[in-house]
Structures are given as C-alpha cells and as structure tokens.
Design a protein around this nucleic acid. Structure first.
Lengths: 342, 342
DNA sequence: CTGAAAGCGCTTACAG
DNA sequence: CTGAAAGCGCTTACAG
C-alpha cells in the first residue's frame, strides 16, 4: 500500500507513458487510435492503461480544441413537462438512435423555470462539455440566448426570431399546410361553424397552425372572428378552451385543435356537456400521438413525423460537426390521418 | 470588420484581461466572484467581459480541479424506457428541484443497449464533465463499471454487488417490509392461494420484494412453491406472468405484484379470463403510481416516496461534494395504501 | 514510428 | 488588492 502513490489520485496520461516507457505524445496517439504507432508500442501503452485503470480526463481535450464525444438535447421546459409530453420522448428517441450509432453520448438538458433560468444551461453549453446542441420546444418566454455559443446548434421547429437568422439550422414540419388541410376537411364535410383551439403564439408551431386554419377559413369565405381560442398545447388547456368556446358560440359544430393533447381535452369538455362527437361536433387534432388511437371516438389528426425530426436534426448536426458548409433547413411533410372523430 | 480579430474566435480570459488592463489572475478572480478585488477593477473586468461577450470555457476548469456546476442523473435504460416509466420522471423531478435550488445543472444520461453500452456513458462520467452522479435503475445486466470513477456517486436503491461496497452512497426504500405487509394483508383477508409476480432478480428491489413476500408466506405457514412468477416491472410482463400463473394454479385468489405496472397488466389478464377483482382474485401493487388511481378497480398498493428519493439522493450528493465524511445510506419507509383491489 | 517542447484556457500558490 | 509564473491533463506541430 505505502509503496504505491496515493491511491486516491487518478492516473494521468503521463503516468501511463511513464509506466509504458514512452512519451506522453505516443501515449496520446495510442489513446486516440492514431494509425502510425508500432504494434508493440501500442500494446505496451494499452497494457499500461489497463493495469493502471486509466480513464481520460476528456474535459481537458476541450481546451485543446478536441471533441468531447457528446451532444446535448436541450428541452426548453421543466423536468416534469419533459416527461409529461410524448413529443419530447419521441424526438429524443430519434436523436438517441442516430447518436448511439455514431458512438456519441446523448445528454438531456432541461431548463428550470427560475428567474434567471437560462444561466446554468447556457453556461453548460458554453462550457465545452458538448460538441453541439439540439434545441427543442423553444418559445418566446424562454428564448435561450444562444448568440455567443461556440458550438453548432440545430432547432426543432423554426426558431422564434433568432438574433442571427442565418446562423442556426432547423428542421421543421409543414404546420401551416397540415392545419389548412385539417380545417378544409371540416369545411368540406359541411360543417358551418369551424373553430380552432390555437397553440401558444410565442412558438412558430402555434403561429403557423393558426395561420393554416385562417387560410382555409378565409378561402371558404368564412368569417372566423370569435372562433379562435388559445391553449398551451396541454390537455387541461384544451378542455378549458373548449368550455369558453361553447359559452361564446354554442352552435359550434367543428373544432380543429392545434395539438392532440388539446383535442383530448376538447373531447372531455364536449362529453361533459353532452355533445356527441362527431355527430354534434367534429374534432381534429394535430400530432398523431398514440393516445389518439384510444380516445372515444378515435381521433382524426394531422400526423407529424416526430421521431424523424429527431433523426434529421441529428443528421444535420453531425454534418455540421463534420464540417458541412452552410446551416441547413428542412421542412417535413405532414399527413392527415382519418379516424372517427371527423 | 477587418480591424478586429477573427470574429470566429471566442474571446478567452486572456482577451478579457488585456481589454481590462489587468492580469489573467485578476480576471479569473472576478470571474469566480472572489471577494478581494477592488470594486473599480471588478467593474473594469466585468465590462470587458460583457463587451467581448465572454463565456468561460468551463471544461478547462476540470483539468485544474475546479467544479463544472453540473450533476448527472444516469438512468440505466434506453431513451424510450426513460420516458415510459413514471418512476424515472418522479425521481428526476425530485433531483431537479434540489439541484436547481443549488444552482447546478441536471444532466440526464441514458445507457443505450448496444454491446459495449457502457463505454460512452462511463467515458462521459469519467471525462470531468460533471461533478457527481446519481445512478438510477442499475441492474445486473447493465452493471455500470463505476470502479474508477473520480467523482462521488449516489445510487437509487442498494446497488447490486458493488465492487467496493463501502464506497458508494445510496438511498433505498424498505422494499422487503412493504412487500411483507402487502402479502400479510392478503393472508389476513382470508385468501388461500397468495401468489406473487416478482420483479427482475438482478435488481435489489426485485430481490427484496420477493423476500418480503416469502417471509409473510412462510410466517403464515404457507407453502408458496409454484406461486412465484417473474416479470420485468413492465405492464406487458405482468400480463403474461398472470396468464402463466392462471395456467399453473387456476385456483389462485390473490396476487401481490412487485410493481404497479405489472399489477395493471395482471388486472387486464384477469379481466380477459373473466375473473372479478377483488371478488375472485385480490390484487396489490407496489409503487403508488398515479395510474393506480384510475384502474378498475382502483389499485391497493405499497407507496414508496419516489420523489423524496430523488431529493434525498441529491442532498446526499451535495453533502459529498461539500466534503462530507463517509458515504451515507438511507432507507425510506413505505406505506400501504388501501383502495378497492384488495 | 517516436520524442521534446510548446500550447490549449483557466486557476492558484507565492510574492509583493 | 494585484501580478508573474507555474501548473492542470491532454494534444499537436515540428523534428528526427
């Protein structure tokens, strides 16, 4: 015991080099899998590493311009919402798959709702702990100030008003088109009073889906004033919004909800006042979450390829890390999936 | 444009010092909020920082023994299970609350199920990117080899066979006691054939809950051979296990499931073959997840304080980071919550 | 193929 | 209160 060095000190690369009788430069080359090392030397170093139980202090690479081997997925919500919303689960799954295949570690970061909420997260991102970041769910109230970040960033959804528009990449979904088609279906089915439960207007997804609704309504010569209520994409907000809507326009006979969770809330509110779906009121959601298959009646909705967003975002980020040219933007298609509610 | 330095290079602390007309030592002191700096000097440095848009390369601190300001929560499951199991959500919520209060960033890490699954995660943990780690859901099949980690670690649940038993802290729940009380309730209610759906035996929670069942059964002089079936804590496994059980022991009239999700599966399986709960078969779960309140009938279960585990683990970790003496272990109480299923 | 040396960005005794 | 200098662990031209 007393003949070895202090057992609490982790071995460093210099220790490994010494034990193997080589320079730290060579030890580093072995550590990083460089080709030009004599097999015998390589073996010496490797065995020194394993007998010392060497583990590289990866953070030290950062100061030297190296990579950390990890990528952040920043979800601009509190921990509890991260888990409550299946959207995040699926996007994470998509990202995780790609990253794992590339041998990179996915690091999930959440933004607490404190006053200076962004400080710790931005500090982390800025701190050289990750090679790049995927940012999900950003909205006006939580506008991560990513201005000075030294790493590539890809957003899920067109970011709200980025300081430097051209600087960031994003992968979006055709929110406007999807909302328009959904609304059009309600109109084509002969519904007279087609309302919408819009999403938060500080997120482009909320804005674009409302825009799609308005275009369809205007195109059909409808006056949609008073037929727009707002929610936050969550179920409870959909339920409340529907109640308000029913108060204001008792004769409403169709609702386009800008998210499935809000549509589920709408279904509950309608059932509580005894309206039949789709008999009295037709309902269409947006997202195509699994829950929509189990509602009563099953939910007609606009499918967005959430998991694919995760994989595409990751692919784009990997391209940037690989030194791709300009930031790229992609917009994925949506698809109307018809079930029983409309 | 051309009169300033290359715009792509982030400013370093040396740049700040130069701009402020001080040494890097002083700049560093301001950056770290040391007290002994003349107010005027401090202001100069601060304004240089903000006008240069300085962001510290936090990773560089690691090599120097400093703190990163972040803590990992390692969930030994794939991304999708992380989101599927409410247990992780609640423990994360508990940890997140404590950490946010301490101004630390929570970093969620997941362990992909690839062959050498642990490599990236351990590399990350070993890399100096976090100050400590909370480890959740570890089991025999995924035995993170944390032996050489240079940072403090706290486990959720007594770890399986740690290499160095005294080295790690953990916060556990009285699994054995809870399981025993649940089983005893079934026996006291006059049930004759009390079976259990046990959890995975490569996790101490699975082992301890089975032990509690066995003790109660033995205490009542029961022969419980053939009355133990196994699942993986998930719903589907509970459903299948119940089907097997029914095959083997058609006259079973009580089931203690080692998790609520498995109990939910049991309820489904029982309903499918037309058994009434609790009339024909009484069922008790373990966890007290929200889902148990909405089953038909509502689920009698053993409550474990999951969120508190998260906060206690975090508190313990913070104590270790603060230089507390020995690793500590805590065991939290469970509580039988009686609803309609038993 | 390998080593001596300089460097990455930040921190910390040690002087003053 | 402040600075010059050495150091953290790792990497990378530059020679050979």
């Amino acid at each position: 015991m007393s003949s070895v060095e202090s057992p609490e000190l982790r071995p460093t690369l210099a220790d490994v080099a010494r034990a193997a009788g080589v320079s730290t430069a060579t030890a580093s080359r072995v550590l990083n899998g460089f080709p030009r090392v004599r097999p015998k030397t390589r073996r010496q170093v490797e065995s020194a590493m394993s007998s010392l139980g060497y583990a590289r202090q990866r953070a030290a690479r950062a100061s030297t311009g190296g990579r950390t081997g990890s990528v952040a997925l920043v979800v601009c919500e509190e921990v509890l919402r991260l888990f409550a919303d299946p959207y995040f689960a699926r996007i994470s799954a998509g990202a995780g798959k790609e990253l794992t295949a590339a041998g990179l570690q996915l690091v999930l970061l959440t933004v607490p709702a404190t006053e200076d909420y962004q400080a710790p997260v931005v500090r982390y991102l800025d701190g050289g702990h990750v090679d790049g970041a995927l940012v999900v769910g950003m909205h006006g109230r939580r506008p991560l100030d990513l201005g000075w970040l030294g790493i590539p960033v890809v957003f899920a959804g067109r970011p709200v008003c980025p300081r430097e528009p051209g600087r960031f990449s994003y992968v979006d979904v055709d929110n406007r088109g999807g909302a328009q088609r959904a609304t059009q279906r309600l109109i084509d089915a002969g519904r007279r009073t087609v309302a919408t439960i819009a999403g938060p207007q500080d997120m482009t997804a909320g804005v674009d889906r409302l825009l799609g609704y308005r275009q369809a309504a205007a195109g059909a010569g409808r006056d949609h004033r008073g037929l727009v209520v707002f929610g936050d994409f969550g179920q409870a907000s959909g339920e409340h919004a529907t109640a308000r809507l029913l108060d204001r326009k008792p004769h409403v006979d169709a609702i386009f909800a800008a998210s499935d969770m809000m549509a589920v809330g709408a279904l509950r509110a309608l059932r509580r006042v005894g309206r039949r779906v789709p008999g009295d009121v037709a309902v269409i959601g947006f997202d195509d979450l699994p829950v929509g298959r189990r509602t009563d009646p099953p939910l007609t909705t606009v499918r967005q390829p959430i998991e694919e967003m995760g994989t595409r975002m990751t692919a784009e980020l990997l391209a940037m890390l690989g030194g791709s040219a300009a930031p790229g933007c992609a917009v994925l298609d949506t698809e109307l999936v018809i079930r029983a509610s409309a």
